[in-house]
């Protein structure tokens, strides 16, 4: 339980840590869109994925995220990847055949489609990890709130939503600590959380969940009372001690992202094929 959860904020002081949270959120969305672009040929697709992967890897290096943490978080996904591969093989496809077993054809496309999904998953995971491990949860919600401000025009409760998100984020570590505490207390009473029969396991989970629920409900009630006692009013106008400041580095980063996004859109629309251009036959 004490292990660092995936994407937990890590207080370094890198360039990416110092960037404006609003920019980081926009950049995340932009990169996510780029990951889903489709290009003229398979080779072109893989080339662009390769370039994106290099860019993302450089960003991870800047943010001081170790590759190993990414791979650790991928471990539980093996099952899903195998499942995807099987489904893709079973789905009828067209194109070149890789192997034929007793009249059952496995197409190159099935393999490629699975690979695309895996690459997209890994890239998306790394991007989210970069965002959450370089941005304090509170900054993240401030950024979200700012980005959602236009929605106020259609009477969307922007402030309330961002308050809910920031409270939820704020209490994740607290809940983890609480879980740890209760698990230790119950295992002192002989509960075995690791092995045991299914029946014992269910009992073990119950002895953890009930106290956890009760303390969470109590905590939320106390929090609500404390907020009310300090005169919290969701419709009130709020000022902030730490203001988000847009700096030159933010503008430069935004420019960089716009260039990549624009470039990829152009390549996609014009059906540009670098391999055909160079006359490389695949």
């Amino acid at each position: 339980m004490k292990e660092i959860a995936l994407g937990r904020y890590v207080p370094y002081n890198s360039l990416i840590h110092r960037l404006d949270p609003r920019l980081k959120i926009v950049a995340l969305i932009a990169f996510m869109v780029m990951i889903f672009f489709k290009f003229v040929s398979t080779a072109m697709n893989f080339l662009i994925y390769g370039i994106l992967a290099i860019v993302i890897y450089i960003m991870m290096r800047i943010a001081k995220i170790k590759l190993i943490t990414l791979f650790k978080s991928l471990k539980p996904m093996w099952l899903m990847i195998c499942f995807l591969l099987i489904i893709n093989i079973l789905i009828p496809s067209t194109g070149d055949v890789l192997v034929e077993i007793n009249g059952f054809k496995i197409y190159y496309n099935a393999i490629f489609n699975t690979l695309y999904i895996i690459i997209r998953l890994v890239l998306m995971l790394s991007l989210t990890m970069i965002l959450t491990s370089t941005t304090k949860p509170l900054d993240l919600t401030y950024g979200l709130e700012w980005l959602m401000t236009p929605l106020k025009l259609i009477r969307f409760p922007v402030h309330e939503i961002s308050m809910i998100i920031s409270l939820a984020l704020r209490f994740i570590p607290t809940l983890l600590e609480e879980t740890d505490r209760i698990m230790k207390a119950q295992s002192s009473r002989g509960v075995d959380f690791e092995d045991g029969k299914l029946k014992d396991k269910i009992k073990a989970i119950i002895s953890l969940i009930i106290p956890l629920f009760i303390s969470s409900i109590q905590r939320s009630e106390e929090l609500a009372n404390a907020m009310e006692a300090r005169g919290y009013d969701p419709s009130g106008k709020r000022t902030r001690y730490r203001k988000m400041k847009w700096c030159l580095r933010d503008t430069l980063s935004l420019g960089f992202i716009v260039i990549i996004l624009g470039g990829l859109i152009t390549l996609s629309i014009t059906s540009f094929d670098v391999f055909a251009l160079l006359g490389i036959e695949l």
Binding site: K184, A185, Q186, I206
Partner: peptide
Amino acid sequence: KKYAGLVFQFPEYQLF
């Protein structure tokens, strides 16, 4: 665990 019993701080949260 039976030989050495441990009572945590504010143990009342372990009731269920």
